[in-house]
Amino acid sequence: MTANEKAKAKTEQAAGAAAAAVGHAVGNESLHAKGRALQMRGDARQVKEKTKDIGKH
């Protein structure tokens, strides 16, 4: 996994988790949903990069 893509994935996961937690805490369903979506995008990016790494070995 390239370092840049790995960093992007981790950043998206962390930002998404934080936004989802804040949205849940204040009762803002829209913010909670956007946070979960961002977190899932980070998860998907990480899976994509790990799959690319497997193909290289």
Rank of each mutant, 00 (worst) to 15 (best):
M1V: 02
M1N: 04
A3C: 10
N4F: 09
N4L: 13
E5L: 12
K6F: 03
A7Y: 06
K8T: 07
A9E: 01
K10V: 15
K10Y: 02
E12N: 15
E12C: 11
Q13M: 13
Q13V: 15
Q13S: 08
Q13T: 14
Q13R: 14
A14D: 12
A14F: 04
A14G: 07
A15V: 08
A15P: 10
A17N: 11
A17M: 08
A17V: 07
A17I: 04
A18R: 09
A18H: 07
A19R: 07
A21T: 08
V22T: 08
V22G: 01
G23Y: 00
G23L: 01
H24M: 15
H24A: 13
H24I: 09
H24R: 15
V26C: 06
V26W: 03
G27E: 06
G27W: 01
G27M: 05
N28D: 04
S30C: 01
S30N: 09
S30G: 02
L31W: 04
L31C: 03
L31H: 00
L31N: 07
A33Q: 15
A33P: 14
A33F: 04
K34Q: 12
G35K: 00
G35W: 00
R36S: 12
R36Y: 03
R36C: 04
R36N: 09
A37N: 13
L38I: 12
L38E: 15
L38S: 07
Q39P: 02
Q39M: 11
M40V: 14
M40G: 08
M40F: 10
R41V: 03
D43P: 03
D43E: 14
A44R: 14
R45G: 06
R45P: 00
Q46W: 09
E49P: 02
K50D: 01
K50H: 06
K50P: 10
T51A: 03
T51V: 10
K52P: 02
K52R: 11
D53A: 11
G55M: 10
G55E: 06
K56Y: 05
K56M: 04
K56V: 08
H57N: 14
